[in-house]
Amino acid sequence: MPIMVLKAAYVALNGSDRSANTSKAELSMEVEEKDVTTFASNGWKEVAGGLASGGLAVTFKNDLAAAALDSVMWPLFGTVVPFEVRASNAVVGTSNPKYTGSILIKNWTPIAGAPGDVNEASYTWPTSGPVTRATA
């Protein structure tokens, strides 16, 4: 079984590559569990998938300089924007699929830390609509 170490993951928001500011990326999806048990289930619980949802979790090293991360993210606060994430910044392919969709930028923390800390913040933004996987 191959093991993958993330070294150069790709994270783009609203068409802009944010990988240089990103120190963590995690895309997760889940589906609601709906109980469809009947008397014909013979005492066993039966389930079906309901609505799907997801989230994109990222940690950003904040940059407040002109035309840097904060100036790009601030106008996106409160809006739904497209995203793309890949395990590697290499070309999309069967061993490096891209996941795309839209997320709600529901919070933004441009300044975080105590004296001597790196100014960074972590977010988990909910997906809006479907997430797709492509290998080309």
Rank of each mutant, 00 (worst) to 15 (best):
G15A: 10
V80K: 09
T100Y: 00
P130N: 10
G54T: 05
V5E: 12
F39R: 08
S19W: 12
N62S: 06
V5L: 14
R133D: 09
T94N: 09
G113K: 03
T94Y: 06
A9C: 11
K24I: 02
N62R: 13
N89M: 03
L27M: 09
V80C: 06
N21M: 06
A134W: 07
V81M: 00
A68D: 14
R133C: 10
T100F: 00
Y123W: 05
A67F: 05
N42R: 10
L27D: 10
S122Q: 04
I3L: 08
A12P: 09
S28H: 11
T135W: 03
G93Y: 04
E32G: 04
L64C: 05
E32D: 15
T109H: 03
A20T: 12
S95A: 07
A8L: 01
W74D: 06
N14H: 15
V47E: 06
A134Y: 10
T79Q: 14
V85I: 06
Y123G: 05
A134C: 05
T37G: 08
P2V: 11
A90D: 14
S19E: 08
G78H: 01
V131Y: 01
V11T: 13
T94F: 06
G113T: 07
L6I: 15
P75D: 07
T127R: 12
N89F: 03
A68M: 14
